[in-house]
Amino acid sequence: MSYVISGIQQIGVGVKDADEAWKWYRRFFGADVPVFTEKAEAGLMLPYTGGQPRSRYAILALNMQGGGGFEIWQYTSREPQPSSFDIQLGDYGIFSGKIKSPDVKRTYEYYQSQGVACLSEIHRVGQGPLNFFARDPYGNIFQVVEAADWFQDRKQLTGGVYGAVIGVSDIGKALTLYRDVLGYDEMVYDETGTFESLKALPGGTVPVRRVLLRHKAERAGAFAPLLGRSELELVQVTGGREPRKIYDGRFWGDLGFIHLCFDVNGMDELKARCEAHGYPFTVDSSNSFDMGEAAGRFSYIEDPDGTLIEFVETHKVPIMKKLGWYLNLKKRKPTKPLPRWMIKAMSLSRVKD
Rank of each mutant, 00 (worst) to 15 (best):
S2N: 15
I5A: 08
S6H: 01
S6D: 09
I11W: 00
V15L: 09
V15I: 13
K16N: 15
R27I: 04
R27W: 07
F29Q: 03
F29M: 09
V33H: 01
V35L: 15
T37D: 14
L44I: 15
T49V: 12
P53K: 09
P53W: 08
R54F: 02
Y57R: 13
W73V: 08
Y75C: 05
Q81E: 13
P82R: 09
S83D: 06
F85G: 08
I87P: 02
L89F: 09
I94C: 08
P102W: 07
E109S: 11
Y111V: 01
V116M: 04
E121T: 14
I122Q: 06
H123M: 11
R124W: 08
Q127A: 15
L130H: 12
A134Y: 03
A134M: 12
D136T: 03
G139C: 10
G139D: 06
E146S: 14
D149L: 08
K155Q: 15
L157R: 00
Y162Q: 00
A164H: 00
A174K: 03
R179S: 06
D180L: 02
Y184I: 07
E186S: 13
E186V: 13
D190A: 07
E191G: 07
T192Y: 08
F195D: 01
K199N: 12
L201I: 05
G203S: 09
V206C: 08
V208Q: 04
L212P: 06
L212F: 12
R214P: 02
H215P: 05
A217L: 11
A220T: 13
L227W: 08
S230M: 02
L232K: 04
Q236P: 04
V237G: 01
E242I: 13
P243V: 04
W252A: 10
W252K: 07
L255D: 08
G256E: 02
G256N: 05
L260R: 00
F262M: 02
N265H: 15
M267V: 11
L270F: 06
R273A: 15
C274R: 04
A276E: 15
A276W: 11
Y279S: 03
Y279D: 11
F281S: 10
D284I: 05
S285W: 10
N287H: 15
E293H: 06
R297L: 05
G306R: 08
L308V: 12
V312D: 13
E313V: 09
T314F: 07
H315P: 05
K321M: 00
K322Y: 11
W325H: 12
W325D: 04
W325G: 04
L327K: 12
K330S: 14
P334Y: 10
W341C: 05
I343R: 02
A345R: 10
L348S: 04
